[in-house]
Design a protein around this nucleic acid. Structure first.
Lengths: 361, 361
DNA sequence: CCGGGCTGGTAATTCGTATAACCCGGCCCC
DNA sequence: GGGGCCGGGTTATACGAATTACCAGCCCGG
């Protein structure tokens, strides 16, 4: 009764006994090992016995012998919890499964002790690699222990440059957003940011840089008064939108550096009686699926390609330890909805264009 | 080079050699095995060597011997992806970790083949049990293979009654929601449901039943015209709210059977120029964290206790295979915000109450 | 009649850990 | 002075699967 493994289920020995062959034969037959020959009769008996007894291979025994496990560790700070980032896990898991691997996930909630302990456990399970994921894009310090195993940093960058990283291409995203508004004809384009542009938030810094580049490329001189720092939440959008639209020279379009900020902006514009996109055009960022498609009108925004990023993280892990520490950037595609239109013709305080259409109200 | 396990890291034998003792001694010392005696000197040497060499136990070898692994399987349909249900994983993981266990998670996305395959893999890893989770509360069929291992159904109920299940207490939730509105003084209380009440959606059926019970208990005769079936999304809320409020006898309060429906209702009411909670009071359901707290005004709603449910699922798994197939229901606490007030005094089309306050506009 | 090759399989070993069984020297006690 | 016992370890084995080396026939050619 105290014998370990007493409830371990059917083993190869049981199958061998039932089929009247040796354990080695069972192993070779079931694995269809190359370069071996067994009679059809024997194969049949083995398969029949295995099926009969409900044989299932003991993964631990296999790993112990082979030295490599069929699991990948996935540790994140709040990834499983973050409302929109579940996709990142989904992508990682999908790719892992294609390679026949399972994901060992831990959500540390920012607890460094838990993080360290779970990494230890993962390593003791001989995971084939570890994906170290962050809820939001930042520069972070990777635990040293990860040097012992293939590891990649996901949705962030490794400060030390030791590990390959995967992150969204923020600057291009900002550029795309601003360009979309420029292409629609806007010239006074505000941006409500989600953090300081001299801080450590690549999203805030990059998206702003892209916004500036687009403006300059279009020959529009950026007005500092049109760039405002929000908090990344509704209030940041609400307050800043209110301030912008009631200011001396209100913009005709606003680039909100994330969707929640955009939501706050919707609410502020509604309060002011301004319509989207007729009076003001809007572009968001994140394509938060519980939000962006459901706003009225639907929010045109940029999508964080979490699914692909998750996939790629595992892909890179599997591709061997290319210990190059390079960062791979993922483009954020523009998702068109209905929050962008041409600027209103009436508010044109700078009648620049000579051949202005004969405007009927 | 082809030797398996060549990169397997330090083993107990290495430690034993370094410390000048036998492998058994290392095992006994490191595990602090009861009933054994070793000199302090030996213990020190062993620990020193282990630390020196960076020894880490090989979990697979241990499991192989002991027969039971330190992992719990977690398979869900869309749980990892669903925006609000990440908490369910978080809770499960937290409880598992307290028991020193890791979660092996798979998100099947509804793919039955993937589900079967990953369950096989989990079982081959000798998981201590499996949590079978569903994105939304329903009655489902559990794969037979789960009978081989402790298993519990999470956020749904097992049709066969073989497995313990954990689900939210929908009826009480509906009752609480309606009672909150009754207590605020409302008598014409509508409900916009998220599905048919004769269907297989316990949330729709249960919440409606609770709503009815609260009304009847308060002596309010339910008006069938005030119960409407939506689709669970914004449009269901929008359309039905519009219909309700423009009907012959509009309600003074609406119970929306989920938060997204409530959001649609907000939008409809805004369009009609009605204010919440002054003109109409609202109660939602789900306490979706990306939505409910951010609406204006904040939505009073019922919270699905996912964190606790996740915890409890693992707890029940660990508590041994109480193969009782009973369902354990979790109460949904009311989360007060600002969408409920007393009914407007002016619209009282049924002057029932004799001592009506002298209403000033 | 002997050797070689082929067919169809088996015995033995390995992975890393836990643990039951055992062993040896010294001390105490009768 | 011998047996018991205790402190301080060691030896051996099992867990389940994969794999290498080997083995027993049998056939065929020279």
């Amino acid at each position: 009764m105290n014998r370990p493994g007493s409830r371990s289920g059917t083993t190869m020995n049981d199958v061998a006994a039932a089929a009247g062959v040796s354990q080695a034969t069972v192993s070779l037959v079931l694995n269809d090992a190359a370069g071996t020959r067994f009679s059809e009769e024997t194969r049949r008996k083995v398969h029949a016995a295995a099926h009969e007894l409900g044989y299932r291979t003991n993964a631990h025994a296999k790993v112990l012998r082979d030295g490599v496990a069929g699991m990948i560790g996935f540790v994140g700070d709040f990834v499983a919890t973050a409302p929109f980032a579940g996709k990142i896990i989904e992508g990682a898991q999908a790719r892992a499964w294609e390679a026949g691997l399972l994901l060992l996930t831990v959500n540390t909630g920012g607890d460094k002790a838990l993080e360290a302990a779970s990494l230890e456990t993962m390593l003791s399970y001989k995971v084939a690699g570890v994906v170290y994921a962050a809820m939001y894009h930042r520069v972070l310090d990777v635990p040293d222990v990860l040097a012992e195993v293939p590891a990649v940093v996901l949705n962030s960058r490794d400060r030390s440059g030791r590990f390959p990283s995967i992150a969204p291409e923020e600057e291009l995203g900002g550029y795309t957003a601003a360009k979309r508004l420029l292409d629609a004809g806007h010239r006074r384009i505000a941006m409500i940011n989600i953090g300081a542009v001299d801080g450590e938030l690549p999203a805030a810094v990059g998206r702003y840089a892209g916004y500036l580049r687009a403006l300059q490329e279009a020959g529009v001189h950026p007005d500092p008064a049109l760039h405002r720092i929000g908090d990344g939440h509704e209030w940041g959008g609400f307050d800043n939108a209110l301030a912008l639209m009631t200011g001396p020279q209100p913009p005709t379009a606003i680039f909100c550096a994330n969707d929640r900020t955009a939501w706050g902006t919707y609410q502020a514009l509604a309060q002011l009686g301004l319509s989207i996109p007729h009076d003001v055009s809007l572009v968001g960022f994140d394509n938060q699926e519980t939000l962006a498609p459901h706003l009225r009108p639907g929010l045109t925004t940029l999508e964080l390609p979490f699914l692909e990023m998750g996939r790629r993280a595992v892909e890179r892990l599997l591709g061997g330890a290319e210990r190059d520490g390079s960062t791979e950037y993922f483009e954020c595609p523009l998702v068109e909805r209905d929050s962008v239109a041409a600027p209103p013709k009436t508010t044109s305080s700078h009648p620049k264009s000579p051949n202005q259409r004969t405007g009927n109200a």
